[in-house]
Simulated assay, not measured.
Amino acid sequence: MEKYFDINEKGFSVRCKMFYAKDLKDVEYIVIATHGFGGSKENKTIEKFAQKLYSKHKNYGVLSFDWPCHGADARKKLLLEECMEYLSFVIAYSKEKLNAKDLYIYSVSFGAYLTLKYIVEINNPFKKIALRCPALKMYDTMIKGISKEDMLKLSKKKEVLAGHDRKMKIDQEFLEGLKNSDVMKYDYMDYADDIILIHGTKDEMVNIEDSRKFSQNNVIEMLEVENADHRFSDPKTMDIAIHTIVEFFS
């Protein structure tokens, strides 16, 4: 089953999509699923993951939402602090309105970066954390996709457009925020047993070496999926990732 709803807080409206087996009242445990940069909650891989999860565990639900400036969100300019606000709203709603006994999170790429930023800079409300192809050096990843012309505009304090299907405004302050919140420099040892990292060996967007270094430095379990690209576009590789995460959350 699917249900759409909005979380309206502090003048923001977070567009959400909930996946569950039959009755929302039966959901005791919630997995928050976050998409990557330029994506949205209308994510087929999240839907596939949710179906696999609640087919095995009827009391689990998956809550996906649009990051600011993504999908159906009303924001036009991407701000890191608003990303943190959105995740805070979704966490609070899951606990207070949906009465989740435990929270889990499954995050991809930019969403994984924001998850790591959140748990170390704000708090960690999650029982288990699964990260797929995390953009651990998000500043470097963003810079690679910005033209020289736009970089010049940014240096002059001007806004430029970024994104894929939907364009959003970013500025130099956003990039500086990414640089200052370098999750590679933080210590995640206290959370290591509750984190799993999955990365494809043929990721063309995010360097797998970053994940190897991150997992080694923090003693985090890492699964390398042979021949998987950034999006795990081969269904066989996606099946491996989903199975691994479902078992980890179980």
Rank of each mutant, 00 (worst) to 15 (best):
G200T: 05
F214Q: 04
M222R: 08
D193W: 00
T244S: 12
R231D: 15
H230F: 09
V183L: 05
D193H: 05
I208W: 12
E209W: 07
K236Q: 10
I240V: 09
M184F: 04
D229C: 15
F232S: 10
M205H: 14
Q216T: 09
N227M: 10
Y186G: 03
I198N: 08
K202W: 12
T201I: 06
I195S: 03
D193P: 00
D190I: 02
M189E: 14
P235T: 07
A192Q: 01
I245S: 05
S211H: 08
Y191E: 08
V219R: 12
D194Q: 07
E204R: 09
H199N: 10
S233A: 14
V225N: 00
I240G: 01
D187I: 01
D239E: 15
H230S: 15
K213C: 02
M222A: 06
V183D: 05
G200L: 13
R212F: 07
I196Y: 03
N180G: 05
N217H: 07
L197R: 02
I220G: 07
D229I: 09
S215N: 03
S211A: 13
N218E: 04
F214T: 06
I208K: 15
Y191K: 01
H199Y: 15
Y191A: 05
E209S: 12
D203A: 13
M222F: 02
F232G: 08
F214L: 03
D194H: 05
E224Q: 12
A241N: 13
G200E: 07
M238I: 02
D182V: 00
H243M: 07
I245V: 15
N207Y: 12
Y186L: 06
K179F: 06
M222S: 04
K202S: 15
S233V: 03
M238G: 04
V219Q: 11
M222E: 12
T244R: 13
V225H: 03
I242A: 13
I245H: 01
I240E: 07
R231W: 07
S211I: 02
I196D: 00
F214Y: 04
K179R: 15
T244Q: 03
D194I: 00
D210T: 08
L223A: 09
K213N: 08
K179Y: 13
I220L: 05
D187E: 01
A192F: 02
D229H: 10
D210R: 01
Q216H: 11
S181Y: 11
I195H: 07
K213L: 11
H243C: 06
Q216G: 14
D203F: 12
A241E: 14
I220Q: 02
V206K: 15
M238T: 08
H199T: 11
D234N: 15
R231Y: 14
D234T: 09
V225D: 03
S233W: 02
K213E: 14
E221D: 14
S215C: 13
Y188M: 00
